[in-house]
Write a protein that binds this DNA or RNA. Sequence first.
DNA 1: CTGTCATATTAGATTGTGCTAATATGACTT
DNA 2: AAGTCATATTAGCACAATCTAATATGACAG
Lengths: 114, 114
Amino acid sequence: MYITDIDTKMKFLHGFSNKSRVLILESIKEEEKTVSQIIDELGISQSSISQHLACLRGCGLIVGRQEGKYMYYRVRNKLVRDLLTNFDTVLEDIHENVHGCQNHIDEKEADHVG
Amino acid sequence: MYITDIDTKMKFLHGFSNKSRVLILESIKEEEKTVSQIIDELGISQSSISQHLACLRGCGLIVGRQEGKYMYYRVRNKLVRDLLTNFDTVLEDIHENVHGCQNHIDEKEADHVG
DNA sequence: CTGTCATATTAGATTGTGCTAATATGACTT
DNA sequence: AAGTCATATTAGCACAATCTAATATGACAG
């Protein structure tokens, strides 16, 4: 089996390391959408969405097609779609064991522990 | 299908967002190892490895078991293992389209483009 | 060819992350 | 109980990532 080098892998995985990006991926997982639709749906600023879309393109996770003045984005292919589904499958199984990575636990959350 | 909330999902995905963590996961994907073994294998500092292991535990991705003064870590279960394999499967398919997220392209890489 | 709408890009401020160095804990040995 | 080895924790710095605000581009309508 061909093993892609770790740096390429990290660039790819970077796509999943931010909440806005993951929400975008989920939003366009099953159907392509215009940038405006994504903005409206997620309530994230135009600039931020645009930057994240550029990022996701660079990660190889999504593709865009222009139609007039609209830009339609969708998840690249079935493999990526299946990977997104796989996240949910694993999470369903292990979610009770997910407590967050040390440095991430901020006041808000620390409060309602116990 | 039960959908885990996005914040839990992000805590989980955080495990894959760092090179050292991904290397650790790959290292213990098929067999459990002691912390020392991982340190030797990856050549990353003891402190750093220990912090990443704590992080991966918090992400629910790995489990540890103590045996005397040694701590053995392994990937939690087959589902997580399969997810790691899935990364490689997708990458094999899309790696030509992975160019990195804008903000990430630093001098070193920018040089040997073209 | 001017205005408008959709999207992209840039700069700068703010926040988050990961490293190193130092120190702490806890198990086992003598 | 003192020493040693394996691992964990903490603090602080350096750097990376993300957001906002402002501006730019490019397509189409009039």
